[in-house]
Design a protein around this nucleic acid. Structure first.
Lengths: 340, 340
DNA sequence: TTTATGGTTGGGAACGTTCACAGAAGGCTT
DNA sequence: AAGCCTTCTGTGAACGTTCCCAACCATAAA
């Protein structure tokens, strides 16, 4: 262990104190923006800091303050999905922006297997982070339970049914689904079906609820099919089933853009024109939406804002704010393009 | 500052020492797997660790060892591109897997503006991380310069021309571009153009070089257009220009899958059939490739392996290994589908 | 018996901060 | 003039590790 490969030894608070002629304690006060520091002292310290190129040693600070100034972003998805879901990238960006703005570090934890779960739980117990943001948790998620048990500041982005009592940020899936279905209705469609997905998550369940509400008396349960995943294949298979059940179908609400893309391809192969013969709408306003032909009408969810709000929520708890119960829902927006 | 909101005080090495009846020094030796510890002592310590639920305090350790056990993953892209580029997600996953496997923390730094640049440089100087992995650096990248100057263990994924002397992991863009262009030629195309992008990066430059080499005498500089970004819009605009210059064009190499997707849509709107009238190939084998109609022939690059290798490279330097000069190139593979 | 040797152990010192406390200086009230 | 705030400053004592040195105990060699 060559400990000193010519390291020029970083400046410490003692160096700043010596150069400025001000005591260590006062230097610390300046560093932390505390009151009760004279202008004279403050200026001398600031000059000395610049002169010796001082930057604070985090380890020493963390040791004495008993915190880490880091927040974990826990992504609980099978690896392949991390990229399939365009929302995750945006959430990550929003979270990162807000945390680094507050001078906190974002530590990304991607986990997949049960072994990872145990490792991450151990990690959290180790006090490596002061708080956690949990993405895409499932029912009975062991990490969510561990976080709840530790009682560290935390927030969900979206939340599973029966989740532990941790505040969450999400969107109003029910209302958004109702809105876009209503607009689809106004284009004059008579026989409207839905390809539902992920009914074990609130998002999937709520989108179905909103769809049902929008149709009212026109709702026909035989025109709803459902599958486990928000995926292209879900849309393809779902559309095949719907066409078989009701050849005269002229409108489809797909539970996500990827689902819509799959459905659209099946429609094309079946010789139906979109939107002339069948109108179709999706959900997410992800990159799928503009890649479709025709471009997809869909619901935009503010993914980066979800990340930001979750970060702010955790930061607030970190500052001693109360841990709110329940959730915050952000606004969505219907984006009307050419597919319906 | 309520310092003790009923905190049960985490167990320290002293507690382990007291419970096991072994000295602090020996407990530390057990913790670090050092030699010169008797079996008796080791077992007693391990039992005590379990009994008191001890986990090591990182801050204290970092303070005395003068390192952080964290590696920065620096992503230098305009925010919107972080999600557009499917490679980044995969690289991130690979890096994360390898670092956490070695018990290192991955700190994701996403930066965009010049202001961010300064902030990150300051961050690196602060000793928050022991090493850095730099993604998608551009020519004259200030972060790359800062990392080089600090001399901390680092690696590029891909590397810009005139980059500082930091090892890099990449793919052989030139050879891959040559291969796929050659296959495109073999489908009997006579007038082949290229929509190039990001010529300020090695990837963009090398793909053009490979394309040129493959065509040999058939190369016609008027059939090359170039744009700053690997983006859908690049492909759309590029294809319009190429069609205007040479209506008889029957083959296109797009610098990325996203570019190819844009080009394909313009071709379709212009009434050209793919692959019957025009053959088109892309690069990346990203999710764009299978969503296109017809599915795109392209080059698969092992993005997660790039991330893994970069992590291993940095870890090796961290263990005192020499910093290699130059780079390592990973194998690519041509994926032949229906677009050519 | 003495001396060297090598494995094993214990404890002092240091890492660079923040915190709490004591106290100084100056202005105001009594 | 004494007392009491208020503002400001300096210093000792942690925080929980690792590192290093000294010492211990067998055993082997002299």
């Amino acid at each position: 262990m060559a400990r000193d490969r010519s390291l020029p030894r970083r400046a410490t608070i003692h160096d700043v104190a010596a150069v400025s002629g001000i005591s260590r304690g006062t230097v610390s006060r300046v560093l932390n923006g505390e009151p009760y520091v004279s202008d004279h002292a403050r200026q001398a310290v600031e000059a000395a800091i610049r002169e010796v190129g001082y930057v604070r040693n985090t380890a020493a600070r963390n040791l004495v303050t008993q915190r880490s100034r880091a927040v974990a972003l826990i992504v609980h998805e099978p690896h392949s999905l991390v990229l399939e879901d365009p929302n995750i990238g945006n959430i990550l960006i929003g979270t990162n922006a807000e945390l680094s703005n507050a001078d906190y570090q974002m530590v990304t934890l991607i986990l997949d297997s049960a072994r990872d779960s145990e490792r991450v739980a151990e990690y959290l117990r180790g006090g490596f982070v002061d708080g956690a943001i949990i993405l895409s948790a499932r029912v009975g998620d062991p990490i969510a339970l561990a976080v709840a048990e530790l009682g560290i500041p935390a927030a969900f982005v979206g939340h599973p049914p029966n989740a532990p009592d941790i505040p969450y940020i999400g969107i109003d899936n029910t209302s958004a689904a109702r809105q876009i279905t209503t607009r689809l209705l106004k284009t004059g469609r008579k026989r409207i079906g839905m390809i539902a997905a992920a009914l074990d998550r609130d998002s999937g369940q709520d989108r179905l609820t909103g769809f049902t509400a929008a149709l009212g008396e026109r709702f026909d349960p035989t025109l709803v099919v459902d599958f486990p995943l928000y995926a292209y294949d879900t849309g393809a298979e779902g559309m095949r089933q719907l066409l078989a059940r009701e050849p005269a179908i002229d409108g489809v609400f797909a539970a996500s853009d990827a689902v819509a893309a799959g459905a659209m391809d099946v429609l094309r192969n079946a010789g139906r024109r979109v939107p002339d013969d069948v109108g179709i709408v999706g959900f997410d306003d992800s990159s799928w939406a503009i890649r479709c032909h025709p471009a997809l009408s869909t619901v935009r969810q503010p993914a980066d804002e979800l990340g930001r709000q979750a970060a702010l929520q955790v930061l607030d708890q970190l500052r001693g704010g109360p841990r709110p119960t329940g959730g915050t829902l952000l606004q969505t927006e219907v984006v009307w393009r050419d597919s319906a």
